[in-house]
Design a protein around this nucleic acid. Sequence first.
DNA 1: CCTAACTTACCAACCAGTTGGTTAAACCAA
DNA 2: TTGGTTTAACCAACTGGTTGGTAAGTTAGG
Lengths: 216, 216
Amino acid sequence: MATRKKTKIPEADARARILAAAAEVFADIGFAGARVDEIAARAGVNKAMLYYHVGDKEHLYATVLTETIDRVPPVLRKALENVHTPAEKLQCVLDTMATLPTSNPHFVPIMLREIASGGATLPDEMLVRMAAIFRVVSDVLAEGTTSGDFRATDPLLTHVTLVGSMLFLVASQPIRKRVAKFAGVPHTHTLEDLARHTGNLVLHGLEVPKKRRVRK
Amino acid sequence: MATRKKTKIPEADARARILAAAAEVFADIGFAGARVDEIAARAGVNKAMLYYHVGDKEHLYATVLTETIDRVPPVLRKALENVHTPAEKLQCVLDTMATLPTSNPHFVPIMLREIASGGATLPDEMLVRMAAIFRVVSDVLAEGTTSGDFRATDPLLTHVTLVGSMLFLVASQPIRKRVAKFAGVPHTHTLEDLARHTGNLVLHGLEVPKKRRVRK
DNA sequence: CCTAACTTACCAACCAGTTGGTTAAACCAA
DNA sequence: TTGGTTTAACCAACTGGTTGGTAAGTTAGG
């Protein structure tokens, strides 16, 4: 309720409501499918006000993107603070990634669509931020490799595999439920399950260690 | 050039050209962004002819989807014919998936976008086909588990992780190149590299086997 | 002369962005 | 304190270009 400098009661920060509504709509139907009127309506704001507060559709989209991704690196770094072995750090990264869609459910579909379109419209601003996230993960990988815990892999490919798996697993949840029905297998997984499965798979691999192997 | 039944020279199968053009445009900008006029133009066909041959935009999209995914299971099964150990089969699945975007470059972005939208518009027809692909992979996983080569994992999650990694790796190639520049790391990978990396990661995992581990 | 294949010309709905205002809070000079 | 001025916040109504879809006709093979 705190009034700012001057002006007539700025209707509980319209800008924030517009960005939230935009994230929702962009996530649901993508940039091309999103309607500015729909965003304005969901934000409970006149369309002209949307243009007044954040500019045109393209700028609105870019703002949603950057303001969302900016929250990721600090969260990742904070989560890693009290974790020490490389394997634990990697699992921590995955666990944290799995929590992101809880606090920010619209980020995953938006990014997936960006990937799908080859990032044709991704501004350099976003790439800088993606590189920042990559660096956090690649530091963990490098630490694991030099400490002798991890095998040496291409860090960029490994990072993309991790992020891709998590994004895909999270985003595919509704479809997975339907596919599971058709394939006749049960399906009940939490976000933590997804992170655990990915961590387990990527850390230990599928193969049974030779010594423990039991051929029948 | 072969003329079919009757009619006035059916302009070298307009329907096929329409579907090809549609796949292109849907892959580039998604269903909502795609313009029917653009698709018709790329197919070298009058817009009214597009409606005459394949019906409205929605039906056109559904047709592209099903006709594309239908090619996957036979290719997978054929590729698996001459491969025998579970590990080799799994790598074969990944290799084959990596070849798909070569023969059909539009499938990956289209599927990624479908995942992003939670499959809200995915017809049951598609789910049946996705379940068919899942069954091929899950058979390989099950075989590996019962033979003692693979650890037991949730087959659905593992399948989705594999497919997701491959789709994501392939689709993210252009963005990866740009991110690599910002992160200051080199970047040159072929589709085979992607399949090999994923196979290596998922089969053997990141962790160095205890016996071989060298702490410094 | 019938019918599949093809075309032109058109339309109504839609949609991003703008115009031309109103309102009231804040500021300021007397 | 007052009353005039400025300015941020807000809005209804409009604009003009776009777009999915169609109607009504043409062409030519059988």
